[in-house]
Design a protein around this nucleic acid. Structure first.
Length: 225
DNA sequence: AATTACACCAACCGCTTGGAG
DNA sequence: CCTCCAAGCGGTTGGTGTAAT
């Protein structure tokens, strides 16, 4: 006896979202806010399950998303937080305004893990790999020498350019088309986010939950092609 | 130029959590 | 309490672009 599916999947679309779908979802949320994700697709006219809509909004469409490459400072902070919190990505993401847990998780798994291994650290425990090996093998000293010779030349590959700014979009040419509309909307959204303080709101969630503020986005959806 | 290997990241799956009734 | 359900969360997969051969 398996778990019941989160929704009736028959006839639902899966896979990458199209610009049109993004547009529909964005327009719907901007005009109506988020009440119940299960109802969103049917009210927005989307052949997607509510879960998929929620994920798309959280990870891609939210106007307050930062995107762009992680700065060195962000990476350092990520490593520090991970050493304290482990794989609790949502907790970690709470310390990175504009970053999603998915984005942080992906960055950790594709970049930081490797970076730490090159630094001779276990990404899981944050302890030096040498110590771990030494625990299992008494010949730790000779391994340390070997490590120092091997690490440095490759590690430079993982240095972030000095002039990288927080929030800077460093997409390759092939990603730029895909991100263009989103970036455009983020630019518009960010000005509204900046004004949150004027309403005494200190978080994006407060903003989402506030129907009055959604009025400010009444023409927001027109920016889509 | 064609093929293969690798890196990246969006999206999915299924388990867990929390709150309403 | 107990049950049910929506939302949250973390692990994993698959598609796509790029680099290497």
């Amino acid at each position: 006896m398996g778990r019941q599916p989160c929704c009736e999947k028959v006839g639902l679309k899966r896979g990458p979202w199209t610009m049109e779908e993004d547009n529909k979802l964005m327009n719907f949320i901007l005009n109506n806010g988020i009440q119940c994700w299960r109802l969103v697709p049917q009210l927005a006219g989307l052949m997607r399950c509510g879960k998929s809509c929620r994920l798309r909004w959280i990870n891609y469409l939210r106007p307050d998303l930062k995107r762009g490459a992680f700065t060195e400072a962000e990476e350092d902070m990520l490593i520090e937080l991970h050493s304290r919190l482990g794989n609790r990505w949502s907790k970690i993401a709470a310390h990175f305004p504009g970053r999603t847990d998915n984005e942080i998780k992906n960055h950790w798994n594709t970049r930081i893990k490797k970076k730490m291994k090159f630094m001779g650290l276990d990404p899981l425990t944050h302890k030096p790999l040498l110590l771990e090996q030494k625990d299992q093998n008494s010949s730790g000293e000779s391994q340390k020498l070997e490590f120092q010779e091997n690490v440095s030349p490759d590690f430079k590959e993982y240095q972030i350019p000095q002039n990288t700014q927080a929030g800077q979009v460093i997409s390759g040419p092939n990603h730029q088309d895909k991100n263009e509309s989103c970036i455009k909307n983020m630019e518009m959204g960010s000005s509204i986010i900046e004004s949150l303080g004027n309403f005494g709101l200190d978080s994006f969630q407060n903003w989402v939950d506030n129907p009055f503020l959604w009025d400010g986005f009444s023409n927001f959806g027109d920016s889509f092609p």
